[in-house]
Design a protein around this nucleic acid. Structure first.
Length: 481
RNA sequence: GGAGGGGUGGCUGAGCGGUUGAAAGCAGCAGACUUGAAAUCUGCCGUGGGGCUUGUCCUCACCAGGAGUUCGAAUCUCCUCCCCUCCGCCA
């Protein structure tokens, strides 16, 4: 969520931001509603202030008179009652006026709030402007020594690479037929060394963040309340991407599972551990000294992949369920600090990929590719020799594929989550400030098995296990048939 | 699934119809004492919104959320949500 006051003061910044992100939201409507709301509030507040004052003045008199009436009888009581009614008439009249103005105010708020949730965070000025991912800008490329990304895999290694689907089939690492039988399209089963490598990668990535980089490991729920989805910024825009568990429709008489948006208090499966990690401190006012909070989790992620029909349907690339090690940083509200963490969090992943000897590149995402909640985003793509356009021999030429995404969100998420900290200001005073947040993938598997298997395959069909991973695989050096 | 008990400021916890935005304690901040620290003493210390005369200013809202009773609600009524305990079932 963005700050309504900021929107009021610099509406053009938000209009331009939404435009650059290709997100439509009626900001003029928000400004109009906001103005109406404030006018009504002023009116109601003035009336209420008056009413309060009268109450204080007349309250004791009313009490006394009421008491006297109980004791009195006949004409005397009637006279007192008349007096009491006269006194009561004044505040009662104000009450009516307030009661008339209130519904107008109440009518504005739901629309205003719904619109406000849709306003995206404007991209930072240094983010390249572009319509979609085709305008992303490559900022860095890395490959292990001896591997030249300007040449083909075959030129580098002396043999044609297999695709990961072929490797997985030949080495019995996954079973797609049975996966689909069990759970439908985009489902899979990891078997034998496939499963072992999957677990080894997750464990390696978690230890890497914990032992080497000082992150706190946490487990988080993957089944969460709607507030956590809205708070982290995945809803309302990404609602169709999430699995909805119509669990119970607890207490909501209007809830109808058939109607989207009327879920009551149901739960949702998270598409990333970010939701759980960010939701941890929802609604809290943190002590400045605990910042920055550095969390890492490994969680199962669920994605409907709605609207991706026909895209990457084969293999382990685009699937409904996978496991992901995710890093999150919650820091002070300071642009320089936020930018510094972004660089660091990307650096962690570079170290990890270099340790696993996987060629990769960094892509600065353009405005159109950012999504509502990011001010800035850098994608990390790993090289996948079995991906991409087919060459003259009908075999893929190899291409980069997204394996990581590092986001910088300023206070967008924390404002929605109402996550703040006490900041010391001059004169021994404190003020409460909304935290900043960032997140980045550490490693997502099985997708990461693709670059791992394809880059480390050998001419004889075996796959060499990178040294860093061997301790997690009982010391095994290669996987053979 | 059954039966109870609860939700009050950063935390603990009083209040149960009228200067209560809320006692007290803890934590925090400032000062005194001290070579320094601890202890002690004194003072300050919730969040959010609106206004303009932008001020150690005025004002409104907030005691889980919503509706109601009342001149007046943290306090009474109803609904919902959430948490806890016990029993049952269960990995």
């Amino acid at each position: 969520m963005i700050d309504l006051r900021q929107l009021r003061e610099t509406p053009d910044r938000f209009k331009n931001g939404a435009k650059a992100k290709n997100i439509h939201v009626d900001i003029d409507r928000i400004l109009t509603l906001d103005e109406q709301r404030r006018a009504l509030m002023t009116k109601i507040e003035t009336l209420r202030a008056e009413q309060k004052k009268i109450e204080k003045d007349l309250g004791p008199q009313i009490g006394k008179l009421s008491g006297a009436i109980k004791k009195a009888s006949g004409d005397e009581a009637a006279a007192l009652q008349k007096e009491l009614d006269a006194i009561k008439a004044k505040p009662a009249a104000l009450k009516d006026q307030i009661a008339q103005a209130e519904p107008a105010l109440a009518a504005i708020e739901p629309e205003l709030n719904a619109l406000l949730l849709q306003v995206p965070l404007p991209p930072d000025a240094d983010v390249p402007v572009g319509k979609d991912s085709s305008s992303n800008v490559e900022i860095k490329r890395w490959s292990p020594s001896g591997y030249d990304l300007a040449k083909t895999f075959e030129q580098n290694k002396g043999f044609k690479p297999k695709t990961h689907q072929e490797i997985v089939r030949d080495l019995n690492l996954a079973d797609f037929e049975r996966g689909v039988k069990l759970a439908g399209t985009r489902s899979y089963v990891l078997t034998g060394w496939g499963m072992r490598m999957h677990l080894a990668l997750l464990r390696y990535a978690t230890d890497f963040m914990t032992d080497k980089n000082g992150f706190t490991p946490v487990s988080v729920p993957v089944l969460v309340r709607e507030e956590a989805m809205i708070g982290t910024g995945f809803f309302p825009a990404g609602r169709e991407q999430a699995y909805h568990i119509p669990e119970s429709q607890r207490g909501n008489p209007d809830a109808d599972p058939a109607k989207e948006g009327k879920s009551g208090y149901d739960l949702f499966l998270t598409g990333t551990g970010e939701v759980g990690l960010m939701g941890l401190h929802q609604g809290e006012i943190l002590d400045e000294s605990v910042l920055p909070l550095k969390y890492v989790t490994v969680s199962t992620c669920f994605r409907r992949e709605a609207g991706a029909a026909g895209k990457d349907t084969a293999g382990l690339y685009r699937i409904h369920q996978f496991d992901k090690v995710e890093q999150v940083v919650i820091c002070k509200a300071d642009e320089a600090e936020s930018r510094a963490w972004h660089k660091k969090m990307i650096g962690f992943v570079e170290d990890l990929l270099q340790g696993l000897e996987i060629p990769y590149r960094l892509l600065q995402c353009c405005t159109g590719d950012l999504g509502p909640k990011n001010a800035d985003m850098v994608d990390i793509e790993s090289f996948m020799p079995g991906r991409g356009e087919a060459g003259p021999d009908g075999r893929p030429l190899g291409d980069f594929g997204e394996t990581h995404s590092a986001s910088r969100l300023y206070d967008f998420q924390c404002r929605r989550l109402n996550m703040r900290y006490r900041k010391a200001v001059d004169g021994g005073k404190t003020e409460t400030v909304v935290c900043h947040s960032l997140n980045n993938t550490v490693l997502a598997s099985p997708r990461f098995l693709i670059p791992l298997l394809e880059n480390h395959q050998n001419a004889d069909g075996s796959v060499t296990i990178p040294k860093a991973l061997r301790p997690y695989l009982g010391g095994a050096e290669r996987i053979t048939q």
